[in-house]
């Protein structure tokens, strides 16, 4: 097995995790992450299991909530904890592109 990830591979996972890295960190993680990933490969040695997936250690049916309103926060409380805010809004540096989600 390889001993280290390439620099590009480290930068890719750092980008997915949104963590900026120094050059020094990059070379450190090239080795450390690879060590973990090599260990994780052991999963391919496991044989004989069945393919069913269970999301977690329960198989209970989700208990649904009644559509009834509860208490909400005061907008002041919402913005007080935010590092940047303006009036009742939470603020971030301008976002150019549109969201990928909904």
């Amino acid at each position: 097995m390889e001993e280290a990830l390439t620099k590009e591979e480290v930068l890719h996972v750092a980008d997915l995790a949104r963590i900026s890295l120094t050059e020094e960190e990059i070379s450190k993680y090239q080795v450390e992450l690879k060590k973990l990933l090599n260990d994780v490969e052991k999963i391919n040695e496991v044989k004989g299991y069945d393919d069913d997936i269970l999301i977690a250690c329960w198989n209970n049916n989700a208990e649904l909530r009644k559509d009834e309103e509860g208490t909400m926060l005061d907008p002041k409380e919402v913005v007080n904890n935010a590092p940047r805010h303006s009036g009742n809004y939470i603020e971030v540096p301008v976002v150019i592109s549109e969201g990928e989600g909904a």
């Binding site: 480290v10 996972v13 750092a14 997915l16 995790a17 963590i19 993680y29 992450l33 973990l36 990933l37 994780v40 999963i43 496991v46 299991y49 069945d50 393919d51 069913d52 997936i53 269970l54 999301i55 250690c57």
Partner: peptide
């Protein structure tokens, strides 16, 4: 979290996470 991101990225979720869930169930 970097390793976790890698394990879920692209096809890896099926190769690792979903497989781990299957074995965990067993």
């Amino acid at each position: 979290i970097m390793v976790g991101s890698y394990l879920l990225s692209g096809e890896n979720a099926k190769v690792y996470y979903n497989k781990a869930l299957s074995i965990r169930d067993d």
